[in-house]
Nucleic acid binder design. Structure first.
Lengths: 211, 211, 211, 211
DNA sequence: CATGAATGAGAGTTCATTCAT
DNA sequence: AATGAATGAACTCTCATTCAT
């Protein structure tokens, strides 16, 4: 009996999450109204308030699985693919860019929002934790590409630089109206070049430092 | 006689601009209401409509001088400072980052908004023009640092890459709550390193290409 | 359970319709504000937007039943009354004039507004359809009074002329401040005469045409 | 000295009147703003308030000359044209219809508004006086066409009926979006027919009455 | 668990009008 | 005589949210 209800409840919650995810991604957080989400989710707008304190809580609930998904992609590339380290780094990077451009309007929230709400401890720190994990994976990949020691100062620094460039690319291309495919194509050549430049720079700088 | 009035009018307009500038910067464009601006400016909200067609017009009126100011800083560094090219590029970059972080929430509008309003030609294209000019100045500075030919393909590509990194840094640090001074300090070491890496990378890649 | 709620909802909707109807009739469409309606209806102004998309939708919701009612009166006179055709025509006409004068300020909307909104097909075309049906009934009545063929050119023309005169009477008397009863009385003699003149004219013209 | 100023003043007033007249005619009274008039008149909107108490006063100041103009056309047709009486009546009628359709949006004010404002005695009664004079001229023309006695009861009644039809035609065609030329063409055949019908009816009724 | 009903706050914008000059 | 500056009231409409059921 109760199980049935619980199941239904779960389902409703999931459909709300799916709807918000879709809409936020398409139109951006503040451009989507609660009623719109409810309509898409096939429930009343009041129902949303049963599961989520407010609009922002909903947002955070969405962010997690998205980032989780990205993390798994990263891990898969790192662990299950038979490729040289650099190729893996390249692939991870493209994956990251692609992911950010797909979730254009969520992007800001996913990567840039300060997790301010301290009252509800858990969800925020979790989000932060995930972000850090993604960064760690990127670092790990860069480390292998450059043959650096695991915990060196340089590694952290270089990863940051690398990460900035990725972010910069995303922000720049974020506001184009072209379809994603085209953007990714146009972007590919530029990124390839950027990738080369950065790796060359890193290596060169390491050599100099050694001297 | 009339001068007094004109002066008062000018003052009102200025106070509106100052208020909007402040508020937009603090809270972002759409989070600020016309009435809020009026209160801050010390006038009625209808008065704003005397001077500016609508909210967006107000925004553009603010954007232009800001970018103009930045452009002049760029030009000053490029033309009037006695420094090696690389030092100039470095300084321009820091200036750019600093500027973007000061105008945090305006940033998006200043650099990332598609200029959609095509009906009224002037204001928008002017904004775009300014943006391009800023990019040109950056390109020019990079060109001199790398000793490249003025219109080479590589130059454009490298400038893009360089610009991405700047953007990336800005976006990353944009959402910190630290005071600007501290951010700039923290950021300085990282950027110094990034700067080195990029230039090394560019040069290396040019050499390889030559071979 | 739910029935109670539904009933309340229905009641609210009805009270909104009643209020708008009253106010529009008294003061004219654009002179009435949504908040005014809400106050009269005893609800918040936002509630109105729950039931009606916007002000215009509200207007149409009012118009339809009114015209429907008039149409039924027409039909009742035509079909259920034992009277000579001319008497029926006379009665229909008086009914029409009466109706228009009761709904003074709605009059313009009911009969004269171009139905511009083409995007949402239904409501508008329905209104137009109703208008045409009323005209058809009038035509039918005139046809029987004159003994004309159903689809003749003359019939259409004469109905137009007849309709103009009705409209003219309404417009003329529309702006008097007298109570409706008195107007109708004053108007009666004049209309009786107009009725005679027109019918005589029509018949005479038909005879001449025949010769 | 003073004369020059007075002249200028007169001129300003005239330009305001001209502007309002044009705009009211084009867009209707309430759709025109004071500022719009001022712009068209080439003066400040505050200037308007020097000459006219408020928007409505402006409206009444415009009405008079317009009606005056129409009256003169009527008189010209009646007195200076060499045509049979019926032709003159026809022409007057067409003139009337034409006038009303040109001044579409003023129409309501010109012919239908109750002159309520009693505080300023003069202008209103003048407007009413003019309206009556126009009606008188129409009556006079009809009287000659029917060969009736000047002050007969029938004449008044028939003129009313005739006037209703004119009004009805105007109201009906008022809301078309076609250009005036086309409307007048379409309207011509219908009116010709209506004219015939009415005159035939009048004459017939007179004959019957005599018998 | 879920919902329709209802709301207050607030958004941008326009208006006729007044005041000081 | 004429004006630019400035205002308050009002407009339609949207929103996130709460309440009673």
């Amino acid at each position: 009996m109760t199980k049935k209800i619980e199941l239904r409840s779960e389902e409703t919650k999931r459909s709300i999450l799916a709807a918000s995810s879709k809409l936020f991604t398409e139109k951006g957080f503040s451009a989507v109204s609660i009623r719109e989400i409810a309509k898409q989710a096939g429930c009343s707008h009041t129902t949303i308030y049963i599961y989520f304190k407010d609009k922002e809580a909903l947002l955070h609930a969405i962010s997690m699985p998205l980032l989780e998904e990205l993390k798994q992609k990263f891990q898969h590339i790192l662990n299950h693919l038979e490729q040289p380290s650099e190729a893996k780094l390249y692939e991870i990077s493209i994956e990251f860019i692609h992911f950010c451009l797909i979730h254009q309007s969520m992007y800001k929230i996913l990567f840039q929002t300060q997790t301010t709400r301290v009252d509800e401890k858990e969800p925020e720190s979790n989000l932060n934790k995930l972000r850090n994990e993604l960064f760690e994976l990127l670092m790990q990949s860069l480390q292998k590409s450059l043959g650096l020691k695991t915990e060196s100062e340089e590694l952290l620094e270089y990863t940051r630089i690398y990460y900035y460039t990725l972010q910069g690319i995303v922000t720049t291309y974020s506001f184009s109206n072209e379809p994603l495919n085209q953007i990714m194509k146009r972007l590919n050549t530029t990124f390839e070049s950027a990738f080369e430049v950065l790796l060359l720079g890193f290596k060169q700088k390491l050599n100099i430092g050694v001297d």
